Amino acid sequence: MSGVIEKVKTGIPGFDDLLYGGIPKRNIVLLSGGPGTGKTIFSQQYLYYGLVNGEPAVLVALEEHPVQIRRNMASFGWDVRRFEEEGKFAIVDAFTGGIGEAAKRERYVVKSVDDVSELIDVVRQAIRESKAERVVIDSVSTLYLTKPAMARGVLMQLKRVLAGLGATSIFVSQVSVTERGFGGPGVEHAVDGIVRLDLDEVDGELVRSLVIWKMRGTKHDMRRRPFDITDKGVVVYSNKVVKLKGIFYRVEEGGSSEQ
């Protein structure tokens, strides 16, 4: 049926409600936030939900050793080794440069992250061989911190490859605590959606919240919603709203995502 946009469920409790069912298929979403806001957990939870529901996935690791990633995912009960053995999940190691004993056992290795064409070739190979439908790049900040002027071009190249191969992707983007933007010059124009995760002090306590700034192809919730990180991952409270009072936030009941 034409005109109906296919959606990809993130599987993150409460979050899909804010997108009226999920991320439009083939969209590239920039998941942006400061340190400790939960970006990596959010993106890995999205991949794992896909894996257990028969959607292969690829994680491009630019900031962490693949061994550490597997360990961190397992701590939430997301054991990806079985999916790797079945060829349904692949980690692209763009972190170690192939150096070290553990790195020698990795199947997909980018020797030089500065070589954008090599990175794209290895990512393309991993997606094709695993038939990945979900891709996470953690984090794209690594790509544009070294070459800010090229940031948008690099993201556009990646976007073409990922969307062309049918993947629905999350680009993790680091921003400093005080920065209210999304990270990188012109990066927000190269993506289809932007979700911003924040960690703010409210009455002496740290409160996690998120806002969907944009999402091409679907209507979306426009309010700041609180979320938690539990031992099973991220949980979004789509029935609560975090209100800004001057420079203070307040969490309130109500403000349902059904507008």
Results as ranks from 00 to 15, higher is better:
Glu106Phe: 01
Arg82Cys: 09
Ser2Arg: 10
Ile28Lys: 05
Ser176Pro: 13
Val60Asn: 00
Gln259Leu: 14
Glu86Arg: 13
Ile41Phe: 12
Gly183Val: 07
Ala151Ile: 07
Gly186Thr: 08
Asp200Gly: 10
Asp93Ile: 05
Gly22Ser: 11
Arg26Ala: 10
Val172Arg: 02
Gly183Asn: 10
Ile5Phe: 10
Gln174Gly: 11
Glu258Thr: 12
Lys243Gly: 14
Ala74Leu: 11
Val251Asn: 09
Phe42Thr: 02
Ser32Arg: 03
Glu85Cys: 04
Val236Asp: 07
Val251Ser: 10
Val29Ala: 06
Ala126Tyr: 00
Glu179Leu: 08
Ser117Tyr: 09
Ser117His: 09
Ser141Leu: 04
Gly54Leu: 06
Gly50Gln: 01
Glu118Ser: 02
Asp115Phe: 01
Lys147Ile: 13
Ala149Arg: 15
Thr146Gly: 14
Leu31Phe: 10
Asp79Gln: 12
Asn72Asp: 12
Pro185Met: 11
Ile247Gln: 15
Arg180Leu: 12
Val135Pro: 00
Val234Met: 10
Leu18Pro: 04
Leu199Asp: 06
Thr168His: 00
Val211Cys: 11
Leu19Tyr: 06
Ile69Gln: 02
Asp203Lys: 15
Ile23Lys: 03
Arg250Ala: 15
Glu63Ala: 10
Val58Ile: 05
Ile170Thr: 08
Thr146His: 11
Ile229Asn: 09
Tyr20Met: 11
Ala57Ile: 02
Asp114Val: 13
Leu19Ala: 07
Met150Cys: 08
Val113Pro: 06
Gly50Arg: 01
Leu155Gly: 01
Ala167Gln: 00
Thr178Asn: 14
Ile194Val: 15
Asp17Tyr: 08
Gln157Pro: 00
Phe95Ser: 04
Ile170Ser: 08
Gln157Tyr: 06
Ala190Ile: 07
His220Phe: 06
Met150Val: 06
Ala149Cys: 05
Tyr237Ser: 10
Thr40Pro: 04
Asp93Asn: 05
Val113Asp: 01
Ile120Arg: 00
Leu210Gln: 05
Met215Gly: 08
Tyr20Ser: 13
Val113Arg: 03
Lys214Arg: 13
Lys25Ile: 11
Gly204Lys: 12
Gly54Ala: 09
Asp198Ala: 15
Asp200Cys: 09
Gly184Asp: 07
Glu55Lys: 06
Arg26Gly: 03
Arg223Thr: 11
Gly153Lys: 12
Ser141Cys: 05
Phe89Gln: 03
Gly21Glu: 08
Phe171Ala: 02
Tyr48Pro: 08
Ser257Pro: 13
Val175Ala: 04
Val154Arg: 03
Arg70Ile: 01
Asp221Gly: 07
Glu106Pro: 09
Ser117Ile: 07
